[in-house]
Simulated scan of single mutants.
Amino acid sequence: MNFFFFFFFFFGLVSLIYIRKHLLLCLLSLEFIVLSLLLMVFNICLSFQFFYMYIVFMTFFVCEGVLGLSILVNMIRFHGNDYLNSIYLW
């Protein structure tokens, strides 16, 4: 069963590496990685009766998702698209 979670994590990393054109697709890949990590943490918390750590991790992952969506909305407002090549960091 743990191999299944590592497969999810590896598939999310591969999709993050190969899909780097749009910010939305990168955020979806990151959320897939976060979902696999959350499933791993849930599996560990289920075996050790340690459920409050699961709530803490879930809170951090939700905050990470909201932060990513706010960056996406601001980027579309200021640049008009979500291409990562249109960002100038200089």
Results as ranks from 00 to 15, higher is better:
Y88Q: 15
L27W: 14
L16G: 03
I19M: 15
Y83I: 00
Y83S: 07
C26A: 15
F60C: 09
Y52C: 04
R20V: 01
F4Q: 04
L23D: 02
M75N: 06
I87P: 02
Q49L: 08
F4L: 14
L39P: 00
G80L: 08
L84Y: 07
L16H: 04
L35E: 01
Y88P: 00
M53A: 07
F61H: 01
F57W: 08
F7D: 10
L30T: 07
E64A: 11
F3C: 02
C45Y: 05
R77S: 10
F51Y: 12
E31H: 11
S15R: 09
T59P: 02
F3Q: 12
G80H: 04
F3I: 15
S29C: 13
G80P: 01
F61K: 04
F11V: 11
L69Y: 04
R20M: 07
H79M: 10
L16D: 05
L13S: 07
F50A: 07
G68R: 05
F11E: 09
F10M: 11
K21I: 09
L69P: 00
N85S: 15
S70K: 11
H22T: 08
F3S: 09
F3E: 13
V73A: 08
Y54R: 05
I71E: 01
S86R: 07
L69E: 02
F4Y: 12
L89S: 03
R77L: 12
I33P: 05
G12L: 01
